[in-house]
Structure formats: structure tokens, C-alpha cells
Amino acid sequence: MIDIRDAYRRALDGFGNRLQLVRDEQWELSTPCVDWDVRALVNHMVNENLWAPDLLAGRTIAEVSDTYERDVLGDDAIKAFEVSAQGAVQAVYTEGALTAVTHLSFGDVPGEEYITELFADALIHTWDLARAIGARERLDPELVATCSEWFARANEGYRQTGVIGDHRDVPEDADPQTRLLAAWGRTG
């Protein structure tokens, strides 16, 4: 299995590659995420990236929420993403990041679990962004496999908290990406 830090870095790279394709007139397009247009989706990703160093360093959501719970894109959303992604990747490769206790809204988890959640969110939102702007939707098959393996164990918790859509039915012979997206409540 791929190192989760590498998977996260690669998922962020995939998101960044799609982000480079966003044209000026596409920032207000709807995404598969209910109530989010492209700009709101990118803002969410930048917020998550900005939180990562603080949370992996042991700070709580209450300590950092006022810092990042706003529009953090400024006039250059692509640059904001690139800078935030670089900081997040540095944080996950910091010694002790995998075993650090991270204080999330639903409780404390090891850093490795938090990084896995960041990875999964980045991967799924890469597809969301691609779908919204009409870019290539095919995700890295190795990342899809890694996410699918983890999400098979984690999906019930996500579903209970309401942070993902209802599971979508797909044919038995659907490809792994289609099955993963369906598990996250997306139709691909």
C-alpha cells in the first residue's frame, strides 16, 4: 500500500492540476458538492490545507477555527492553493506527524488517520472540481484503490455524521472509481 503522505501529496497535485484549468468564467459554476460553487470548493480545500500544520502540531479546532473559517483565496486562488498545499505537505512529512494526536471535531485521532481523511477529501474534491469545469475526471487508479480500501472501513462514520451524500447504486461491474464515487454519494 502507498504511504499515506505520498497519497495525500499526489491527490493535492491532482487537484492543483485541475485548478490550473479553471477559467475566469468558471468560478461560479456549481459543483457536485451541494451549495458549493467552484470558488467555495477551492476555498474549502485551501482552508483544510491551512489547518493541517496546526492540527498536526497539536492545536485544537477551537484554537484555529477563527483563523481560517473565512474566504482565504484573496485575489489569486491558484496561488493561495499552491502555498497552502506546500505547507500541508511539509506538515505531513514532519517527524512524528503520523503518530501525533490530532484534535478533530469528533474526537482525537492519530495523525495518520487525519492525513488519510485529508487525502480522501482531496481526491474526491479533485473529481468534484473536474466535473464542475468539464476537465478530465479520471483519477489516479492507485489513489482510488488506496482511498477505497480505507473508506470501506470509514464510510459508516462519515454517513452517520452527514458529511457525505447517500450511497448511489452502481452496476456490479462498475469500475473502481465509479464505485468509490458512489460510496461518497456522487454519480460519475
Rank of each mutant, 00 (worst) to 15 (best):
R186K: 13
L123A: 09
A120I: 14
R159G: 00
D166E: 14
G74L: 02
W36V: 09
L123Q: 03
L180D: 15
N43P: 00
R5H: 03
N49M: 13
T178A: 09
A57T: 01
E172S: 10
V83I: 12
E113T: 07
D66I: 00
W184P: 05
L29H: 11
A182F: 12
T126N: 03
W27E: 09
V22N: 08
E95R: 15
A11P: 00
T126H: 01
R131Y: 02
P141H: 03
L129W: 05
D169T: 13
H125F: 12
N17W: 07
W127I: 11
V163G: 00
E48Q: 15
A77Q: 10
Q160V: 13
G157S: 10
A91C: 03
D175F: 10
V170A: 00
G74R: 13
R186G: 02
A85Q: 10
D128Y: 02
E113L: 12
V46W: 13
L104A: 06
D128Q: 06
N49V: 12
V34L: 09
R59N: 04
Y114I: 01
A7V: 08
V163S: 01
V92F: 03
D71A: 01
R168H: 11
E82M: 08
G162P: 12
V22C: 09
T161E: 08
R18V: 06
G134R: 07
R39Q: 10
S30T: 05
W51C: 00
V72P: 05
G162Y: 01
T99F: 01
V46K: 07
V89K: 13
L129N: 14
R153N: 07
A57P: 11
I2S: 09
P32H: 11
T94N: 10
